[in-house]
Design a protein around this nucleic acid. Structure first.
Lengths: 109, 109
DNA sequence: ACTATACTAAACCAAATGGTTAACTATTCT
DNA sequence: AGAATAGTTAACCATTTGGTTTAGTATAGT
């Protein structure tokens, strides 16, 4: 059983590395083997293996072993949680638009 | 002039620490001095000062000096960028709901 | 002029991060 | 049985991170 109750700390930390974000991106095409995940990167296989481990511990992917091949699958739940945290701040990046809207509302008589 | 063209790396990395997320949360109430930001935390003032520096380098806040007091202001733009990155993956955390929807659509004749 | 306030800077430390190479294990192919 | 494939593990390294304490600077109050 895998621990999915991971924290925002782990999620944001996992997302802070471009290699890991690219791995996540690749997993949108479906299940991908570790070899196929690793091949486009310049770094060594153990390095990619470590990144996958980080993503796994952050609950962002799961593995399934078939023979000697391990397939990784995206689990987007932590991404949802991160998005929910960010969504609260939408009111602050919308501020400029909001003030334009209210300006127009007040002056459109 | 401050460099606002910061990366997702910096944004997600800044967000991975709970102290920094709490600082961001406090800044939603308006401009806050560094002393007022620091007082609720157990850690030393220099520690908080470092966190604020990290947030500043990530473009998440700006400072304004008034006398000996420095006021911090939230800049939510990087949060928006992070949210946009995450938004793409919405289709994957919505998958279960989607498959329920399509199941119902296919069987509601 | 002195003292308190609101910080920053510097030096230090332990732990975590992101990479390497070399060696190992498990499975599959010939 | 032997060789190739698909990885993981371990040992190592340099850098970054998150904290500390001590000292310094700039402003404000008395």
């Amino acid at each position: 059983m895998v621990n999915y109750s991971v924290s925002l700390d782990n999620t944001f930390s996992a997302l802070s590395d471009p290699t890991r974000r690219e791995i996540i991106s690749k997993l949108t095409k479906g299940d991908v083997s570790i070899m196929d995940l690793a091949s486009p990167f310049e770094m060594s296989l153990p390095a990619v293996s470590k990144h996958i481990r980080v993503l796994e511990k952050a609950g962002l992917l799961t593995r399934k072993k078939q023979g000697r091949v391990q397939y990784c699958r995206l689990n987007a739940k932590p991404l949802h949680d991160a998005a929910k945290w960010l969504a609260f701040y939408q009111q602050f990046w919308d501020v400029k638009l909001d003030s334009l809207t209210s300006f127009l509302a007040e002056n459109s008589e």
